[in-house]
Design a protein around this nucleic acid. Structure first.
Length: 809
RNA sequence: GCCGAGGUGGCGAAAUCGGUAGACGCACAGGUCUCAAAAACCUGCGGGGGCAACCCCAUGAGAGUUCGAUUCUCUCCCUCGGCACCA
């Protein structure tokens, strides 16, 4: 018979809510530290899944634990409610996206409440509320004011299936992150955020994030992609036109035997014009343009290119070398032009070999021998006055020298691109801009915010943006000249919404600003953030950018939003990610019905460390279910507890285990080692069971009460119920964490292992801290040890106090 | 290629300022209870050898340091994740 989890769970959920147990209040007492714990808020798809359960359960353990430790905890929840699924539902089922979304939110909220997470529901927000998105618009206008939001025509990623543009961060392996369609290049005029203006601090401040996983920091570092080098000013022979190339290897400048432009480089057309190369160059550029970026940059693709007919002059030696175009040079990076050094760059080598272009060795290092470019370190040769220098030294010297001579300048290149935020979708935040025939692009004045979405959106899925079809929306007057003007009909990428929601939670009802700076100064930064690794770059990079921007305009005092980050592992079934198409989805509701929320939470926390993948296992949950029932039974049996024999040793040992477990669970929860903390509780329960009837009532009660208190963050409903059954009237949810008595932790006797030559041969029990002489004598007297010593005296005896003796012969 | 994480029983996993490898749990096997089953409870459970005491082997592979290595160093192998014709 299982304990009545169903009644218990709803009972305590109601009780917590009635008593406002989890309401976050800005504390006045200096003694209680603030603790802002946040889990990445969900998209309201309607149902919660095991991934959500895991994410929020991990957070809840920490939130309840910190609260018990006396922190003022802020633990809010909301919904990332704009986005395409609502539009897709509108297209498919003809529903109103707003109605659909709010419906889903209601369902999600119910589902979350059934998990018993300690949220402050008073702070709930949804990004699709005008009260929220008006501040998206406000922030956007501030960025525009600072020149950080701008409109530009450039090649962008277009998802043909989603019918919208995408940010670079949203393109994974050339595919749309959402629908996995192949992304097409398209030349469009769009809104961008100048995240590149923050490239340097975004990179450098990663070093401050000591409590972020290494891999997330590494991924961001890769993504931002800083690279230091020199822009070298080649010139075009004949015209003298400047042709800058970017290189990280100025030490190889004397080995440059040709120059390569990206096929779309404007100079290519110019150079070939009127030469026999005009046609081949145009044909090649067109052929490359037709191929997608993935095709073009795929591994193993042969490098192709043609001669432009033009020549460049190397500024350091006046040498004239041919200018080619080739598909392996990208217009977006550097200057779209490179100097080719086939002897010391593998790509240049392959191309030069194919096209039979000249090569010249300028670095000598070790035995080259093999096929290809030598990219190692070495000594410069054929490099004028720099010959004989180590190439690592020459790098700096040549760069400085070129700068002096005006042959080039040192530059830093970034891989990071500006963030394209325009979306040709309607279920998002309208971009607050107006186009006026006379005044041009005019921002919507602040006092006219929010620019609201129309009530009825004509979503058909065909014929372009629905917003553009709503006359009342599009048609407006110019704020400057008051003449008729047209509104921007694109909306913002939803990652904009989620880039600052953690700030809104600090003061969700603030009406003058996106958030109250005083509240933010108190609660920020988020002390612990928890979410999936899929946001390692996207959301986590954008949020860092927003935080830095909002600091720069004086609203924030912190420059990083999330002090600690935990990326929880995925929930798998049969070794695979749960998904509808695989048919291996385990529905949380079904588990709750069968085992209760507490058992589900406990299993998820017990089966693997939070960062690791978690394999869902139906019989695994039976195991934790059994444990909870055993704890339940302990409390029930305590009522008629009557010790048959009272034994001092047993009592001392049970108390030692009890207090040692309090210490262990405290330390382990603090370090997110929930799986071992739970196993410590299981061991403690086993110990109580073993001592049952052999210890006095007060010792048994002390242990059982401690067990219930320690169980609380993991399985809060059963813990509250048992606490009440134990005769208490206070709520565990707001009760102080148990303390341990350090004097009870020590054992009077210790087991010491005896090794001969490092191999375990025997064990003895001695009083704790026995003197070395006594330990040595006892070890030598041990029969098993004597057998292995074969009468010989040990050459050396190593004693590790209270642990082991190793006899070396 | 570069960067990051990791490799321990049948399974999920413990143990790393070097000190009893496999805690805790699952599965499995045997037992108690029962007319029977379920539940519950008890016992066993890395591999090999031995009636047993006990012995040998074992933390991806190989070397090294050490009285002693899952833990430290080096060289490989493999898995997962990210970036990548980025000049």
């Amino acid at each position: 018979m299982s304990y009545p989890f169903s009644d218990i769970e709803s009972k305590w959920q109601k009780r917590w809510e009635e008593q406002g147990a989890f309401r976050a209040v800005m504390g006045k007492s200096a003694s209680s530290k603030k603790y802002y714990l946040l889990e990445m808020f969900p998209y309201p798809s309607g149902r919660i899944h095991m991934g959500h359960v895991r994410n929020y359960t991990i957070g809840d353990v920490m939130a309840r634990f910190r609260k018990a430790q006396g922190c003022q905890v802020l633990h809010p929840m909301g919904f990332d409610a704009f986005g395409q699924p609502a539009e897709n539902a509108a297209i498919k089922k003809g529903v109103d996206p707003a109605a659909w979304t709010y419906d889903c939110i209601a369902q999600m909220r119910d589902g979350l409440k059934k998990l018993g997470i300690s949220y402050d529901w008073d702070r709930e927000l949804a990004t699709c509320d005008a009260d929220y998105y008006r501040w998206n618009q406000w922030i956007f206008l501030k960025m525009a004011e600072k020149g950080l939001a701008y409109r530009a025509k450039s090649p962008v990623n277009w998802c043909p299936s989603c019918q919208t543009t995408l940010a670079n961060e949203e393109v994974i392996d050339g595919e749309c992150w959402r629908c996995h369609s192949k992304v097409d290049p398209k030349l469009l005029e769009q809104w961008f955020l100048k995240i590149t203006a923050y490239a340097e601090p975004l990179l450098n401040d990663l070093d401050k994030l000591a409590h972020w996983p290494d891999r997330v920091r590494a991924m961001q570092r890769n993504w931002i992609g800083r690279s230091e080098g020199v822009e070298i000013f080649f010139s075009v022979k004949g015209t003298g036109e400047k042709l800058p190339v970017f290189t990280t290897r100025p030490d190889t400048i004397f080995g440059a035997t040709y120059v390569v432009l990206a096929p779309e480089h404007p100079l290519a057309k110019k150079l070939s014009a009127g030469t026999p190369q005009e046609k081949p160059v145009a044909a090649f550029a067109e052929a490359v343009a037709r191929r997608s970026k993935i095709e073009r940059t795929a591994e193993g693709v042969n490098k192709q290119g043609v001669f432009t007919g033009g020549y460049a002059v190397n500024p350091v030696n006046g040498e004239t070398i041919p200018i080619w175009i080739a598909d392996y040079v990208l217009m977006e990076y550097g200057t779209g032009a490179i100097m080719a050094v086939p002897t010391h760059d593998q790509r240049d080598f392959l191309f030069a070999k194919e096209q039979k272009l000249p090569m010249r060795v300028v670095i000598q290092g070790g035995e080259g021998g093999g096929e290809g470019a030598y990219v190692g370190e070495g000594v410069l040769v054929n490099s004028a006055q720099f010959s004989g220098l180590k190439n690592t030294d020459a790098k700096k010297k040549i760069a400085l020298w070129m700068e002096e001579k005006g042959h080039g300048k040192r530059v830093t290149q970034w891989r990071l691109r500006d963030w394209l935020i325009s979306r040709q979708r309607c279920w998002g935040t309208p971009i607050p801009m107006i186009y006026c025939a006379a005044c041009g692009v005019v921002p919507v004045p602040e006092d006219q915010l929010p620019v609201r979405l129309p009530e009825k959106l004509p979503i058909t899925g065909e014929g372009g943006s629905p917003l553009a079809k709503v006359k009342e929306f599009v048609e407006t007057t110019c704020p400057c000249c008051k003449k008729p003007a047209r509104r921007e009909t694109d909306t913002m990428a939803t990652f904009f919404d989620s880039s600052w929601y953690f700030l809104r939670f600090c003061s969700p009802k603030e009406t003058q600003l996106p958030f109250d700076p005083k509240e933010a100064a108190h609660w920020m930064p988020v002390d612990q953030y928890i979410g999936g690794i899929e946001h390692a770059i996207l959301h986590l990079l954008y949020s860092r950018f927003f935080t830095k921007f909002l600091k720069d305009i004086g609203l924030l005092s912190v420059d990083e939003p999330f002090t600690r980050l935990l990326t929880q592992g995925m929930v798998l079934k049969d070794g695979e990610v749960m998904s509808k198409s695989r048919g291996n989805v385990v529905d949380p509701d079904g588990v709750i019905e069968k085992h209760g929320t507490d058992a589900m939470r406990l299993f998820i926390l017990f089966a693997a460390p939070p960062e690791d993948q978690l394999e869902w296992n139906d019989s695994g949950i039976d195991g934790v279910d059994r444990f909870l029932n055993r704890v339940w039974n302990l409390v029930e049996r305590l009522d008629g507890y009557a010790p048959t024999e009272s034994n001092g040793t047993e009592t001392k040992e049970l108390r030692r285990i009890t207090h040692a477990t309090i210490k262990r669970v405290t330390d382990e929860v603090d370090a997110f080692k929930f799986n071992t903390a739970i196993s410590a509780l299981m061991e403690m329960r086993n110990a109580i069971e073993k001592s049952w009837g052999k210890v006095p009532t007060d010792a048994a009660r002390e242990s059982v009460e401690a067990l219930v208190c320690l169980l609380n963050p993991f399985a809060p409903h059963i813990a509250e119920e048992l606490w009440q059954k134990l005769g208490h009237s206070d709520l565990l949810a707001i009760r102080t964490w148990p303390a341990y008595d350090p004097t009870l932790l020590t054992q009077s006797e210790v087991s010491i292992i005896l090794q001969v030559n490092g191999k375990l041969r025997s064990k003895i029990t001695l009083p704790k801290d026995a003197p070395a002489e006594q330990v040595k004598a006892s070890a030598l007297a041990d029969p098993a040890v004597q057998k292995w010593l074969e009468g010989k005296a040990p050459r050396d005896i190593i004693i590790v106090p209270n642990r082991l003796v190793n006899l070396v012969i």
